[in-house]
Design a protein around this nucleic acid. Structure first.
Lengths: 177, 177
DNA sequence: AGCAGCATGTAAGTGGTTACATGATTGT
DNA sequence: ACAATCATGTAACCACTTACATGCTGCT
């Protein structure tokens, strides 16, 4: 079970909400799934072409300006369900921050502290953005519960990073003198 | 600043601790950095060949059975320091679990709950492994502080996942009846 | 003699990024 | 007229995984 067709899942999932052009699709993914998913144009367009060839999506009327919107077909919805229940193949872990920190004794003075501070700041940044999203008024749409659950995941993890960073900074700063 | 040469960093870092064969190197990375880093053989050997060509590592006496150990050179140590201070280029986020959960309303009944349960279990598993590592007796080696810091990161994050999972399970189970 | 573990590599393929090229539409 | 944004794609490249091929060493 390769780690493949993840892009298909994201694309079909997004199109299951509403028909979109490739451009809108990418924007929708960046906006809505942005804090845990990413697709580039170089990935979106070839994927859409393939999905269209396999009749999982279909071209319909024009988008906002030019271009044609793509709509998910029944076969596409079926495919989406099939992809959703496939076991998750996690990519091997690769945490660049921890890799650097692990070799912290080779780091120039103060660098380790600065790395941890940056991590803390980034996490606080994320928390602020999540709070902003939470503040937006929303109706009780069907996907709303699950949107909130993914947001909550981001919040828990960001808070954990802040906690770790503050603990670690206390240790590293204590170590210095 | 491409997301490249991360493998160089991991390899040079590991060799800065002790000379190793490619095989030992890979095992050392899996053991010590295992919870936040990964290298495959198909990556390790070409990298070692390139580093040797660039005189950042050098072949020395045989390993435990056959094969030759590789030692980091002064140029290699310099390179390592240079890589360590390079800004971190994070790969775009791609969380397969959240992607599935986000489209949770397309998931068959009970599937969302099962996904969250699995995530909880995996996190508990990680915590158990971290605890085992903590229990191993260790001397106050130079890298020990930083090893502990990366472990602590793993612990904070795993606890966050457990917390999120339990909160989420309560919500999803409440929703069902 | 045979097996487990040590050791080294290559080849093919994949998923993905980045940069480039191009053009239409809308608002100012 | 011009700029910004909408829109669609391609080409080159990259890191990485997987699978395969090969052979040595030490133990039983």
């Amino acid at each position: 079970m390769p780690r493949t067709r993840q892009t298909d899942l994201a694309v079909l999932g997004a199109l299951s909400v509403a028909p979109m052009t490739g451009y809108e699709l990418r924007a929708a993914i960046a906006e809505t799934l942005g804090h845990f998913w990413h697709e580039s144009f170089g990935q979106v367009y070839p994927t859409l072409a393939r999905l269209e060839r396999d009749a999982l999506v279909r071209r319909i009327g024009p988008g906002r300006t030019s271009g044609s919107r793509l709509e998910i077909t029944d076969a596409g919805r079926e495919r989406l369900r099939a992809l959703l229940v496939e076991p998750i193949a996690s990519p091997p872990p690769r945490n660049a921050l921890l890799l650097r920190l692990f070799f912290g004794n080779h780091l120039p003075d103060g660098m380790a502290i600065s790395l941890v501070e940056q991590a803390r700041e980034r996490a606080l940044d994320h928390l602020a953005r999540y709070a902003a999203v939470r503040a937006e008024p929303r109706g009780p749409e069907p996907g709303e519960l699950y949107r909130s659950i993914t947001l909550s995941y981001g919040e828990h993890l960001a808070r954990a990073v802040v906690g770790w960073a503050e603990e670690t900074l206390a240790i590293l700063r204590g170590q210095r003198q």
